[in-house]
Design a protein around this nucleic acid. Structure first.
Length: 956
RNA sequence: GCCGUCGUGGCGGAACUGGCAUACGCGCACGACUCAAAAUCGUGUGACCUUACGGUCUUGUGGGUUCAACUCCCACCGACGGCACCA
């Protein structure tokens, strides 16, 4: 009998479809609902192996949950709006709708060939008016709540796709889709105020069963930071400059300010000056060098993010001459600059600059010769209990060649260090440093270059003196004048223990790890700022406080307020493209932005002949006069429709709700039906949507909760990602490389069940990896052997032999546990191990265990399992609605185990013993073993460790 | 630069809570069946030394803790992913 997998797979697919067995009812008596969801595909027209890797193991999980007696809903649909349809349409001259619908038809056939347990009756296609009507409706709900707003501001513009993009769609300054450099362009655009939900989006991550790295990526994307807003007065102006800072403790060190080039204050000053044609109004403070300032602003506008990155972060900027701000802490006048290293989109678009304690500020300050004032003493080392205090120095000595003087204690005794020492009572700092250099190295002619303005408070434990110290260390920087040397002055603990070496700066960079010495080098040679916490100095009455303690106090002192800032920006949803949901807004010259009345929804996408994007940033819809011109719903006057379409991520932000009630004509969904299914129990898809779809969906859910449509605040309780399958060459699959694996071909050759099984088996699900062209043969052979084993089925033999019980029950447990935890590879492996064993004892398996075997393989190979279930075991379909076999915990245990004997940590022997052997018995048997005797001959046993059920370890 | 994940045979990978590293599969070699080949079945397969019995080494590198380390600690190297002038 040959097994025609094509025929059988087709047969069962047709049978399941006819019966509609995967169409989920909203309620089934005695069963809990389980919403199982995969990320719906974009209808590109071709189901690739990546889709398979997402959907096939996901279906294994769904089928397993169904056999756990859940009422499983596993819907599918198409994310059908978007650029590729348009681009393909432009290229091939077909209408995007035609192209899309044709692809959907094709992909549906491909999807059906997978044999997944999809509920096709709930299919959602986002480009159809009965879906996007509700996009528009939801837009209007956001609009009414003030959460959808329009604004003109520099947006990310892709010159190739000729549309604006959301922040999330710009990757490394390039368009996520086509890789073109994104430029800034001023356009009126619609945004959703996702930032209102920043706090909730951050906090609620904690309660999600999501991969940690995904949660972390969202956390970073939202980017919460705590700080203060502080006003700086400007001499001669009413306006104040508000800054956001996370380090109010460093306020006394703020020696200048920087405004973003787009900061409104600059624009205002320039505007008032232009009106008066350079001449400033009497008594009014202005910008003396306004021409230069304007030029810089213009230059900034032209730059793309790529340009800015390409400049290697070299700081540029222009001072606003004759403008002075007042540092509110010490009332000092400080200069004000504009520079593009300050972003207009973050905080207040202005900063106080503290060069001594900020990397970026020190770089800028050096370039523009701005004073650097130290206000934080670093604290290094590890805290000690009641440390003894003393003053110390660290000396950095550089010679004419630029080499650094070090002493090397060797790898096991402290490694490479600079010169350090203790200040003796009454001794001067510089003198101490010179003395220490002389004593340890003999060099005596040193020229002082610099002494640090701050001291480093270093805590450490001295093993020599067995006690903790707190050393207040001053850093001293010398240049060696000449090589004249005296004798070293060393004590017994030092003699011959270290060598004096001149080394290059690179070597210092690599080899000096000791924190204090490292810091000395970084400060003088690398010129880096200290951005860590510490103790305040040069800060008036706040001296001596810790950074943490000073933050609140200084903020209060200058009348600032504490403030939480987020990195997250509002979600820009306007697209100047054709193939998307029209924005349901009418622009009336009298009434402004007016919502299209709900009764008039959907605003249908007009059939357009020319849907190419325009260079001027206007949507193609603007060219359709019939669409464009309308009446204002409020005043009845002539008005224009908004001609932008929505980002397709709007569509996918709520599709999982529509699946529950896909044909509802009155509302996006019936809340009562939603209540039965949501939140989604298990969501499976790629990790590439971490800060896009997965964030937006969470935002939509929270909004829908706030307007009372739903009662939960997170859409996806659990989330799992599949990895990416690479080509056989280990490279990303691409047509140009010719390493693309075609799943349709695999199905023709090996059958759906084999492809599914191999995808499960090939490796860790979330990891992916290269495709092994011969690897699938393993799955093919395994399924064939599995099926053949059923030739041993004897309906008269009721129960299995006792000896195979542990194997069978262990396997039931293992396969179930593994599928539940997405370890599909080891689930398949366990089945292989079981089959290998059973093939040795073909007659040992009874009727009920044959049924069990079919059930265990049913999630992976649903067609073959159903065939065995019906044709061989003579059961009624369908195996997929039978219950997963229960294992008997008592039977999973073997009654013997292999006791391993280790002698001095090495395995020397092993033998089988009863599982309940006592320690004494095990020891006795071990010592009687010939091999063991041989090793023990004439030696004393020091220790014996017995680990029940595992091993016995003898130490000689 | 910061944050995160991960490094195990020729390859994909397994290993519970520190307890026989390399399960399972691919590939390869040999054998059986065959006129022959494919398919199938059987045996072997980390490296090195050894005729053999057996021994030594091995989970990115170097150190440490332990009777025992892929697993824990420290330092480093490499790959991948996220963020990146975010004040």
């Amino acid at each position: 009998m040959t097994y025609d997998f094509h025929k059988i797979e087709k047969k069962w697919q047709a049978a399941w479809k006819k019966k509609g067995q995967y169409s989920a009812k909203d309620q089934v008596k005695g069963k809990d609902n389980f919403y199982h969801l995969v990320m719906f595909p974009y209808p590109s027209g071709n189901l690739h192996i990546g889709h398979w890797y997402n959907f096939a193991p996901a279906d294994v999980y769904a089928r397993y949950m169904r056999m756990q007696d859940k009422n499983v809903m596993s819907p599918i649909g198409f994310d059908a709006f978007g650029l590729p349809a348009e681009n393909a349409a432009i290229k091939n001259g077909i209408h995007p709708e035609k192209w899309t619908m044709k692809n959907i038809k094709m992909m549906r056939t491909q999807l059906e060939s997978m044999g997944n347990s999809y509920d096709w009756s709930r299919m959602v296609v986002t480009c159809l008016p009965d879906y996007y009507k509700w996009n528009q409706w939801l837009f209007l709900q956001l609009f009414h709540k003030g959460l959808a707003y329009r604004k003109k501001a520099p947006a990310n513009w892709c010159p190739n796709d000729k549309t604006v993009l959301a922040n999330e769609q710009v990757v490394d300054g390039k368009c996520e889709r086509c890789g073109t450099d994104v430029v800034k362009k001023d356009i009126e655009q619609w945004l959703f105020k996702i930032t209102d939900y920043a706090e909730q989006l951050l906090n609620d991550l904690d309660k999600l069963d999501w991969p940690e790295r995904t949660k972390l990526a969202q956390k970073n994307w939202i980017g919460r930071s705590e700080g203060a807003e502080i006003d700086f007065a400007v001499k001669g102006l009413k306006e104040k400059i508000k800054v956001f800072t996370t380090r109010p403790d460093t306020l006394f060190g703020a020696t200048y300010m920087v405004l973003a080039p787009e900061h409104p204050l600059v624009a205002n000053l320039l505007a008032s000056q232009m009106k008066s044609e350079k001449a400033l109004p009497a008594g009014r403070q202005g910008i003396a060098n306004w021409g230069e300032v304007e030029k810089y602003i213009a230059a900034t506008k032209k730059k793309t993010d790529i340009d800015r990155l390409a400049e290697g972060k070299e700081k540029t900027g222009v001072e606003l001459k004759s403008i002075k701000a007042i540092n509110p802490a010490n009332k000092e006048e400080i200069p004000v600059f504009i520079a593009d290293y300050v972003l207009s989109t973050y905080g207040t678009g202005a900063i106080m600059a503290v060069p001594a304690h900020d990397e970026r500020d020190i770089e800028f300050a050096r370039k523009f010769n701005i004073p650097i004032r130290y206000v934080i003493d670093p604290v290094t080392g590890s805290p000690q209990k009641n440390p003894a205090e003393k003053d110390k120095i660290v000396a950095l000595v550089e010679n004419a060649k630029g080499e650094i003087l070090t002493i090397n204690w060797g790898a096991n005794a402290g490694g490479r260090l600079l010169i350090g020492g203790t200040v003796e009572s009454g001794e001067d700092i510089v003198k101490t440093a010179k003395r220490e250099v002389l004593e340890e190295t003999g060099y005596r002619n040193l020229k002082l270059i610099d002494v640090s303005k701050e001291r480093v408070h270093h805590q450490y434990f001295s093993y020599n003196r067995n006690k903790g110290f707190l050393a207040h260390t001053t850093l001293v920087y010398f240049r060696l004048e000449n090589n004249e040397k005296d004798e070293q002055v060393l004590d017994d603990t030092e003699k011959g223990k270290f060598s004096v070496e001149w080394v290059t700066k690179d070597q210092v960079r690599k080899e000096i790890n000791e924190s204090l010495h490292r810091y000395t080098f970084d400060k003088f040679i690398e010129g880096t700022a200290y951005s860590g916490d510490g103790v305040l100095i040069n800060s008036g009455k706040f001296n001596g406080l810790t950074s943490e303690g000073a933050k609140g106090k200084i903020t209060e002192f200058v009348g600032g307020t504490t403030k939480v800032q987020y990195r997250l920006r509002d979600w820009l949803i306007s697209r100047q493209r054709y193939w998307g949901t029209p924005i349901p807004i009418i622009h009336c010259p009298k009434c402004g932005e007016i919502a299209v009345p709900e009764k008039e929804l959907p605003v249908k996408l007009p059939p357009l002949k020319d849907f190419k994007p325009a260079d001027d940033g206007r949507s193609p819809l603007a060219r359709n006069k019939k669409f464009l011109h309308t009446k204002c719903p409020k005043c009845g006057g002539a008005a224009e429709r908004d001609t932008d379409t929505m980002d397709t991520f709007v569509d996918s932000s709520w599709y999982y709700l529509r699946y529950v009630d896909p044909k509802n004509k009155k509302r996006p969904f019936d809340p009562l039906r939603v209540k039965k299914w949501l939140p989604v129990n298990m969501y499976i898809g790629g990790a590439e949507h971490t800060v896009l779809h997965l964030l937006y969906s969470r935002f939509f859910t929270k909004f829908l909760r706030d307007i009372g449509l739903i009662k939960f605040d997170e859409p996806f309780k659990a989330l799992r990602h599949q990895g990416i399958i690479l080509g056989p060459d280990g490279q990303k699959m691409s047509k140009s490389r010719g390493n693309v694996i075609d799943p349709d071909k695999l199905v023709r050759e090996f059958g759906t069940d084999a492809v599914r099984t191999y995808l499960c088996f090939m490796g860790e699900y979330s990891k992916g990896g290269p495709w092994n062209p011969t690897g699938i043969l393993g799955a093919v052979r395994f399924l064939e052997r599995f099926r053949k084993f059923f030739e041993n089925y004897n309906p008269k033999k009721k129960d299995s032999d006792k000896e195979i019980q542990p194997l069978i029950h262990k396997t039931i447990k293992k396969v179930g546990d593994d599928i539940a935890s997405f370890q599909f590879n080891t689930a398949v492996s366990a089945l292989m191990i079981m089959l290998n064993e059973l093939e040795q004892k073909p007659g040992a398996v009874g009727k009920s265990d044959f049924e069990m075997l079919a059930k265990l393989i049913a999630p992976m190979a649903p067609h073959m399992a159903e065939e065995l279930w019906v044709s061989v075991l003579k059961n009624k379909p369908s195996i997929h609605f039978s219950s997963w076999p229960k294992y008997d915990a008592a039977l999973t245990k073997e009654n013997e185990f292999e006791l391993v004997v280790q002698i001095n940590g090495k395995v020397r022997d092993s033998f089988r013993v009863p599982i309940d052997i006592t320690e004494a018995e095990a020891k006795k048997l071990t010592l009687e073993r010939e091999v063991v005797k041989r090793y023990l001959a004439g030696r004393e046993v020091k220790r014996v460790i017995y680990v029940p059920g595992r091993l016995i370890s003898i130490v000689l």
